[in-house]
Design a protein around this nucleic acid. Structure first.
Length: 782
DNA sequence: TCCTAGCGCTTTTTT
DNA sequence: AGCGCTAGGA
């Protein structure tokens, strides 16, 4: 390799000699003593591990030992002395995946894999590279990484500066345009003209350019830039690219089906050097098309790398036979697959079950009952999960679990570092660590309230712009003049002095302690203590947790870097709980029992996915269903409800088309739910109806059935339906079909007049609630 | 400058 | 229904 000047001199690590007793040395001795790590691999896995030279594509179906192959392959490369750990590039999508991989490599080689500096997420590795050559892309080494929130605030500024109506062209929408472009590796000059003008009457491209300029002024990069700027770096500086191509003797990529264009280009540039690249993925589990992932990347791997070895992993070690057959039949309905058929030697096991519920509340109740039943049989709650299509489904399930006292945990809810109080605290710390971080400063300049309003902020902003200096510096200068009104002036002086003081403390104080002092002296803690709302105690608790976690890092800078790249807090709670999460969140996980509620048209497949992406959207939804089913080791339990509340309104729903695509011989249809309304069957229900001991008929569907006819509900149910029929017959009566002008009564909105009729949807002018659109089934003649 | 009533939106989520 | 944001008034 050519001699390169700093910081391109990569020889430091390339000339590395294995330390005595270090990772590589140990691994080599493992290899010499017969490569025990290869034991237990099936022939395909073994091939995926042992073919280390040249391009390899591993098509790894769900549960076929993908992670094992990846980690063993790394171990093998090291153990055979083919490369040092520091010469292997291994990329994942999530921090979780890279953590897991680090751990498992450590296990394989008998110690923690600290010697793998280039194992990480795309973004972490992109950042690492950028921090080595920041000046080549117009940044400084301490550049700030903006999260989505910062990003949108900055775009809002840009939009306002251009005098564009924010109502019509919200920053959020611009953010998704720009994100989309960055995902595709497009710098402002490369965006197709048509797309660039789609936003804000032709100003989209200009806004993108302005936004990028602002980022550079602020010495900041957003998530997209972490990769995009790498691409620019590699393209504009071939010597740098070459140095990395030579450094990375072997490359491994996890979840290759999820790569977007930018990531693909990045990988391709690096892999063009030695061509020792192994991509592992499953086209059937590609569920991130909506955020730019290109399944095509996996489909065209063989074209990009002629002569690539393709290995299919189809032996499934996770699920029992019926489950696998069900999932396999479902996914076979997709076209354009690379085509894998999973098989297992495991027993057939239990058939997946399908249960129809009256409404979503009953669905939640049935799930709760099933969980309790399993629990009584000795199953652990930790081995069960409920996988939903959208987060909104979680609420009813949670409510039910709270009623039952069933411990649960929601995975992937609002994230710790995204909570307002945490972001505020972090903003203080960011300014202390880097006084030029304008966005952070602006965030907390008036939090807690210091009597600084828009007018003052605007004034400071203007001054800073004119003088080309950071805002905090502008504040320092302005308070020496008499341009500010006395009150804001003294407030700003106080704040500037505080920041000056805190900055000097960095050297001497441990970061956690410093944070505590800052939160105290700034009045931030006070602010929440004074506000006695329901959640203020929780917020103070979060702040404490933040301070506590900070000291695990060597210094403030390391902590902040961690926060911006790893937006999650490690959850150490080991308590035994049922997990509730979205199907997306479940990828890569597995459970003995998986509950899959909400298999209804419109919800799953999701109507919006269908509307926006048509057939491709439908296929992605189907892959999502496949992912859901294949999470189950022993039991998969599917549910659909006939009525579901959407945005507050009850809607009649039909079962998902995916249900019809399941193989009947492998699925058990649970007939009438064990207890319409709770316990026991028909007779008991009748008894309950008398109202003794509290009626368990509390579902809206039931209440509705009691109050009015249900002409739109097909009489599909068996015994419960009969009861309902009886009740329906007893209640008011006539088949509802409303005419304009008719006076009606709605249980919630009261009396009103029908303004127009559209199928079963009525637009009604309510006397109290105004004009609303409601379903016909919710009103009666008044 | 701060507070509040009203309006509009609402899939999935990582980094 | 529920939330967040904005505009407009005190």
């Amino acid at each position: 390799m050519p001699q390169l000047a700093n910081p391109l001199d990569l020889n430091d690590e390339l000339s590395y000699t294995p330390q005595k007793g270090g990772l590589a040395a140990r691994a080599q001795s493992v290899a010499r003593s017969n490569a025990a790590y290869l034991d237990g691999l099936n022939p395909e896995q073994r091939r995926a591990v042992e073919v280390i030279d040249g391009p390899v594509l591993v098509l790894a179906g769900a549960g076929t030992g993908k992670t094992r192959v990846l980690t063993t392959r790394i171990a093998h490369i090291i153990a055979t002395g083919s490369a040092y750990p520091s010469q292997i590039l291994a990329v994942t999508f999530t921090n979780k995946a890279s953590r897991e991989m680090k751990e498992r490599i450590g296990h394989l080689l008998g110690q923690v894999a600290e010697g793998m500096p280039w194992l990480g997420t795309f973004h972490a590795i992109g950042t690492k590279i950028l921090r080595r050559h920041p000046e080549l892309v117009g940044l400084k080494a301490d550049f700030t990484i903006l999260d989505t929130d910062d990003q949108i605030r900055l775009m809002r500024q840009v939009i306002r500066a251009e005098d564009i109506d924010e109502k019509r062209w919200p920053a959020r929408a611009l953010a998704s345009f720009i994100d989309g472009w960055k995902n595709r590796g497009l710098t402002p000059d490369k965006v197709p003209a048509g797309e660039a003008s789609a936003f804000a009457n032709g100003k989209g491209g200009k806004l993108y350019t302005l936004y990028q300029e602002r980022l550079k002024q602020l010495n900041a990069a957003d998530f997209g830039d972490l990769l995009l700027e790498n691409l620019r770096l590699f393209r504009e500086h071939p010597d740098v690219l070459q140095a990395y191509q030579e450094r990375f003797k072997y490359m491994l990529v996890d979840e290759y089906q999820d790569t977007n264009v930018a990531q693909y280009l990045w990988l391709r540039l690096l892999a063009q050097g030695r061509r020792n690249v192994a991509c592992v993925g499953d086209d059937d589990q590609s569920i991130y098309g909506w955020r730019g992932a290109e399944v095509d990347n996996i489909l065209r791997f063989e074209k990009d790398f002629p002569g690539a070895v393709v290995v299919r992993l189809e032996r499934n070690y996770r699920s029992t036979g019926h489950i696998l057959a069900t999932a396999g039949k479902l996914i076979a309905h997709n076209q354009g697959r690379l085509g894998k058929t999973l098989f297992t030697d495991d027993e057939l096991g239990e058939k997946p079950t399908l249960t129809g519920a009256w409404d979503s509340e009953e669905e939640a109740r049935l799930i709760g009952e099933e969980i309790e039943a399993l629990q009584h049989k000795g199953h652990s709650l930790a081995d069960m999960a409920i996988l939903v299509r959208i987060s909104a489904q979680m609420r009813e399930i949670e409510e039910r679990f709270v009623t039952l006292g069933l411990p649960y945990r929601v995975i992937g809810g609002p994230r710790f570092y995204e909570r307002a109080e945490i972001r505020d605290a972090l903003a203080y710390l960011r300014v202390v660590a880097n006084p030029t971080d304008d966005l952070a400063f602006e965030r907390i300049v008036n939090v807690p309230k210091r009597g600084l309003g828009d007018a003052t902020i605007e004034q400071v902003h203007l001054y800073a712009r004119k003088a080309q200096i950071p805002i905090l510096e502008a504040v320092r200068r302005l308070i020496e003049t008499d341009e500010l009104k006395p009150k804001p002036r003294s407030a700003l002086r106080e704040l500037a002095l505080s920041f000056g003081r805190w900055s000097t403390l960095i050297e001497t104080m441990k970061q956690g302690e410093l944070a505590e002092q800052i939160l105290e002296e700034s009045g931030y803690t006070d602010m929440w203590q004074k506000e006695r709302t329901a959640d203020s105690a929780g917020r103070l608790e979060n702040l404490k947790e933040l301070v506590r976690s900070m000291d695990e890092f060597p210094d403030l800078g390391a902590f902040l870097e961690h926060v911006s790249l790893v937006m999650e807090m490690t959850d150490n709670s080991t308590a035994e709980r049922v997990s509730i999460m979205t199907l997306h969140g479940a990828k890569g996980l597995e459970f003995d029992t998986v509950f899959l509620p909400g298999w209804e048209e419109g919800l799953f497949p999701n109507q919006r996915a269908l509307d926006e992406s048509g057939r491709a959207g439908l296929e992605e939804e189907r892959r999502l269903a496949y992912v859901g089913l294949t999470r189950a080791r022993r039991r998969a339990k599917l549910y659909f409800a006939s009525n579901r509340r959407i945005h507050g309104l009850w809607n009649a729903t039909t079962p998902s088309r995916f249900i019809d695509e399941l193989p009947p011989e492998h699925v058990e249809v649970i007939d009438a739910p064990a207890g319409f309304g709770g316990h026991g069957g028909y007779g008991r229900s009748r008894f309950d109806q008398g109202g003794f001991g509290g009626s368990s008929y509390s579902t809206p569907g039931w209440q509705r059935a009691q109050s009015q006819p249900q002409p739109t509900q097909p009489a599909a149910r068996k015994s419960p339906m009969l009861i309902e029929g009886e009740l329906v017959a007893k209640s008011t009566g006539t088949v509802a079909n409303f005419n304009e002008g008719e006076r009606v009564f709605h249980i919630k909105f009261g009396y009103g007049a029908v303004a127009s009729v559209d199928g079963n949807k009525l637009t009604i002018d309510f006397e109290k609630a105004g004009r609303k659109m409601v379903l016909e089934t919710f009103v009666e003649r008044g």
